[in-house]
Design a protein around this nucleic acid. Structure first.
Lengths: 189, 189
DNA sequence: TATCTAATTTGACAATCCTCTAATCACAAT
DNA sequence: ATTGTGATTAGAGGATTGTCAAATTAGATA
């Protein structure tokens, strides 16, 4: 079954389950197979309406139909219902990336605070400060030891207020210091 | 948790899951908690739209929120997602009876073929014939043995064509015969 | 306090969905 | 072939939903 592979198919499955009348139909079919006229009588619905609902259930792969004498008999296809909600919600990472871009927020923040490579201002908000500081910290080579003078020089490329930047980098644990020697922190990941 | 107990609440849960954007949100929250602005950026949606979707997810009990600095941070409430689709679809018998009437079809058939206790005609269709024959068979006392003469007399109350009725009852295994002695079949259930 | 920021609400519009009636279709029975 | 039966389609009305822009609210910052 390669139905339910992508996002929209899964949403469609849930949508098919998202109506009381259809849930009742599935319950009735759980007991035994049923034909349209029967369901219509039980649910006090117009046969056309039942047809409509049954079409949705069949499209979603939840029921199947076969002919018997005068009737079109519908049966529950129970296999899919054995999976957990989580398995059905959970999409592989890569398909999340195709449908959305998880770094969009980060990108947006970086774009709005950096102009031509320079930091226009230091954001007051933690989450945004974190993002721009991480971006700046990436300029330091891991493992290498820096004199304070070198650090200042490097930071000046981003903003004239190099002292604040240096302080924040320390505060956010992106840069470490011992005496006048600085080095970049290990990446958390 | 007595949420998800009744039909409409369950339909509401599925409806909440029945939209691609909301499935993506849940996936993003699976990795870590997120705030609205972030989700909006990632999904390329208006913050108001994200708010709208988040409200549906919270109403359905799928996410919870807490404040952090400037932000309202939303987290996935995963417990519910561990249940299988079937458990969520499956309603106890009694609540099916309150929301629908499983015997409505049978009732309808009986009403339309019996007028003032008499069978107006013998239906040609199997399913309906079955229903009216079961109803007639119920007039015979279980265990008791009937002479053919008694059977005919009893059936005449329903329809003048007692011979056809008798034949059908045998054919549908509702009545058994040995020689000229008849008796009612055991109930299948 | 005044100001800033994210979240929510409001209102509008389009799209989708649910329900029914009426018409049509497919097919079994005669 | 004609009739009868259930299923489906077409279309329409009303309700709900998804989306965004604009206004408002709640709460943190300074």
């Amino acid at each position: 079954m390669d139905l339910y592979k992508n996002l929209d198919q899964r949403a469609a499955l849930f949508k098919a389950l998202g109506h009381p009348a259809r849930l009742l139909m599935l319950n009735l079919m759980r007991e035994k197979s049923r034909h349209g006229e029967e369901l219509a009588a039980i649910l006090h619905l117009n046969p056309a309406t039942v047809s409509h609902h049954l079409a949705k259930l069949t499209d979603a792969g939840l029921v199947s139909a076969h002919k018997d004498q005068y009737y079109q008999v519908f049966s529950l296809r129970g296999e899919i219902l054995k999976t957990t909600l989580m398995e059905m919600v959970e999409m592989p990472q890569e398909s999340i990336h195709t449908d959305a871009s998880p770094d969009a927020f980060r990108d947006k923040v970086l774009r709005s605070f950096f102009k031509r490579g320079r930091l226009t201002q230091i954001p007051a908000q933690q989450k945004k400060k974190q993002i721009i500081l991480e971006h700046i910290a990436a300029e330091f080579e891991p493992g290498r030891r820096y004199e304070e003078r070198e650090v200042n020089h490097l930071l000046l490329d981003f903003n004239e207020d190099y002292a604040s930047l240096r302080r924040f980098l320390i505060e956010f644990n992106l840069l470490h210091r011992e005496g006048s020697i600085y080095w970049r922190a290990e990446k958390p990941e």
